[in-house]
């Protein structure tokens, strides 16, 4: 089987599973919205205060929502033996991991990106910055999932790997957070955002190459028991 039909099979499978049990997709989205809704309540409903912190709040909430969803990335596949079957299949494992992670990022991260302008409105973010916010999320979100897939692969064999996964992955998210919020800040101040977005793109390009190989290696090692 060629790589393209293989990718097609994986996509259809993940799509069917997401349709059958939408909680996997909806939970992170609801979490994302609820966390952001806490800020006007907890800090201040004053538009100038909210607009100042909006970029950071949206991004931190997105980080946490992604982290929350990561544990289930490989967990079910492992428990059901599907992962084992992938390991003994003749296909290149990094490619399988790449497709799986990207589909997952689209299913889980896509709704977050679509929802972000609405949340920006709630946090009094100037409408002129929505474009930058969405662009930063589009470039940053797949990076978060790719980075996270390495952590998820390393902790998939542990019974309670959830917290360890967060501890492993969260520090690695710092560069994405810094450049993405800087982009939103720059847009608010009317400064050029291209540089920040370009750096986010560079991080994504790097992770597209490195993360699937690392995650595939981690999956092989963690399935050895």
């Amino acid at each position: 089987m060629g790589l393209v039909p293989l990718a097609g099979l994986i996509c259809r499978r993940e799509w069917l599973l997401a349709v059958r049990s939408p909680a996997q997709v909806l939970n992170p989205l609801v979490f994302f919205v609820l966390v952001i809704a806490m800020f006007p309540l907890g800090i201040s409903p004053a538009p100038e205060v909210l607009a100042r912190i909006a970029g950071g709040v949206i991004w931190v909430a997105a980080l946490l929502a992604v982290l929350l969803s990561l544990e289930s990335l490989f967990r079910e596949d492992r428990d059901e033996g599907v992962l084992e079957q992938l390991l003994v299949s003749p296909h290149p494992l990094p490619f399988v991991v790449l497709v799986k992670v990207l589909v997952y990022a689209l299913l889980v991260g896509g709704p977050l990106v679509l929802m972000s302008p609405v949340l920006g409105l709630m946090l009094s973010l100037p409408p002129a910055t929505y474009g930058t916010l969405v662009a930063a999320l589009l470039l940053g979100m797949p990076t978060l999932f790719l980075l996270g897939s390495v952590g998820a692969a390393l902790t998939v064999g542990l019974r309670r790997g959830g917290l360890l996964l967060v501890l492993l992955v969260l520090p690695l998210y710092v560069p994405v957070l810094v450049f993405a919020t800087a982009a939103v800040d720059a847009a608010q101040l009317g400064m050029p955002v291209r540089g920040h977005l370009a750096l986010l793109g560079a991080l994504l390009a790097l992770m597209l190459v490195v993360a699937p190989v690392a995650a595939a290696g981690a999956l092989r090692v963690t399935s050895e028991e």
Binding site: R12, L16, V82, L86, S89
Partner: peptide
């Protein structure tokens, strides 16, 4: 290889499993 863990997605039907899961492997 058919191990202890069967390698079936429990959320999919038998037919989908053979097509989309077993089909990936061989």
């Amino acid at each position: 290889f058919i191990g202890h863990r069967l390698g079936l997605k429990t959320g999919l039907t038998a037919e989908e499993n053979l097509r989309l899961v077993a089909g990936v492997k061989a």
